[in-house]
């Protein structure tokens, strides 16, 4: 059987909220060491990669590897039943046809249970090669979210440049061109590999979808290398990571 209990169920709710506009039906892999999920959006431009380690759960048991095909759209509807401070338990039998979700408040006097039907999905698993990212930056997730939203009003595409002393987000649209440059000497942002600079362009529409995860973590890590998809990574406190990959835009 499989059973995983999180004391703070709103974390799981936030994760589902943060991926539901990108991916619809996904396979969640439950193994003795944790839960993971990898899925692409329908246009194959973005990919969601989630890993939650068993250590982060209050209780975790998974006797054998299970693939749980689930509609994220429907799961998001069920997550509306999770209130602030509720714990959440996910459980199912070994040959499951549904996933049971149990939410309980702190006083233990209110319990909500819902069985979500499972679906069979063709898995479309992509192998992500080992990549040495030449440019990495960690910045305030709220600031990154705000910046992407504001730039989207001006342009569909943003060019990222990460260098020794700054990170620059440049846009060019019908109304003109401009950029936001953030000095990395401030505590909020820092480059780990300062000697290299990479410039890559990305669709802001996707970045705005990724930013729905900003409430999961105060910080977001951006990783880039030449001619490689961008990685936007949020650490889920003591549980694991939620990573988004975004294919770049190229000029022919």
């Amino acid at each position: 059987m499989f059973e995983a209990k999180l004391t703070d169920g709103t974390i799981f709710k936030k994760i589902i909220e943060a991926i539901k506009d990108l991916v619809t039906d996904v396979n969640i892999d439950a193994t003795p060491t944790g839960l993971s999920l990898q899925a692409m959006d329908s246009s194959h431009v973005a990919l969601v990669n989630l890993h939650l380690g068993m250590e982060g759960f209050e209780r975790y048991r998974c006797d054998r590897n299970l693939t749980l095909g689930i509609s994220i759209t429907n799961l998001a509807k069920v997550m509306k039943l999770v209130n602030q401070n509720d714990s959440i338990t996910l459980k199912c039998e070994d040959e499951p046809t549904y996933l049971t979700i149990v939410c309980q408040n702190q006083k233990h006097d209110r319990t909500t249970q819902f069985n979500v039907n499972l679906i069979t999905l063709d898995s479309e698993h992509l192998g992500i090669p080992e990549t040495e990212y030449t440019s990495e930056i960690t910045m305030n997730s709220g600031e990154f979210s705000k910046l992407c939203k504001e730039l989207y009003a001006l342009s569909e595409t943003v060019e990222f440049e990460i260098s020794t002393t700054f990170v620059k987000f440049a846009v060019e649209g019908e109304i003109g061109s401009g950029s936001i440059k953030i000095q990395t000497s401030a505590d909020e942002a820092e480059t780990s590999r300062p000697e290299d600079t990479v410039k890559l362009s990305f669709a802001l529409r996707y970045l705005n979808l990724f930013n729905k995860a900003y409430s999961l973590s105060n910080q977001v890590k951006l990783s880039m290398a030449a001619e490689t998809p961008l990685v936007v990574e949020y650490e889920v406190e003591s549980l694991g990571t939620l990573k988004y990959y975004l294919a770049p835009k190229i000029t022919d």
């Binding site: 431009v45 990919l47 992509l126 992500i128 669709a203 001619e227 294919a247 190229i250």
Partner: peptide, 14 residues
């Protein structure tokens, strides 16, 4: 604004 690539260009199918 450039052409949007897809992830299959960079990642391999399994």
């Amino acid at each position: 604004q450039g052409r949007q690539t897809t992830l299959q260009l960079f990642f391999s199918g399994e």
